[in-house]
Simulated assay, not measured.
Amino acid sequence: MTNKAIQRAVGIAGSQQKLADLCGVSQPTVWRWLHGGGIEVRFVMKIVKATNGKIKAQDIDPDLAELLQAS
């Protein structure tokens, strides 16, 4: 199952490696996110920032977006 938000984020960043660099993770971590692996809350806002807000927290995971708003 491909995570469409991460797929879009990779496209915006230019590659899995570039998104990884912007988020401070390894490329295999981005591959895992892309293929349905869990995304830790601490990386959601890094992905949002890496895409200049083109990807929103609620695009990545609606449940995580609610948690971020509550904090």
Rank of each mutant, 00 (worst) to 15 (best):
M1N: 07
I39K: 00
L68C: 08
G37H: 06
F43R: 07
G11I: 09
M1R: 14
K54A: 06
I6G: 00
Q69Y: 04
R32I: 08
K46W: 07
K54S: 02
M1Y: 12
F43D: 07
I39V: 13
K4M: 12
L64F: 07
W33N: 03
K18P: 01
V30I: 15
L68K: 07
G11A: 10
K49L: 08
I12Q: 04
L22D: 08
Q58Y: 12
G38T: 15
V44P: 00
K18F: 04
G36E: 11
S26R: 11
G24L: 13
I47G: 00
Q58I: 12
L64H: 02
K56E: 13
R42H: 11
N52A: 11
R42V: 11
L34M: 14
A13H: 07
K54F: 04
R8K: 15
A65V: 02
G11H: 04
A50G: 05
Q69C: 02
I60P: 02
G14V: 11
A57L: 08
V41M: 14
S26A: 13
H35P: 04
G14Q: 11
P62M: 10
V44E: 01
K54D: 08
Q7P: 01
I39P: 02
S15K: 14
Q17A: 14
G36M: 12
F43V: 05
D61H: 15
V44H: 00
G53M: 09
K18H: 08
V44R: 00
A13M: 09
K46F: 11
W33A: 00
I55T: 01
R32W: 09
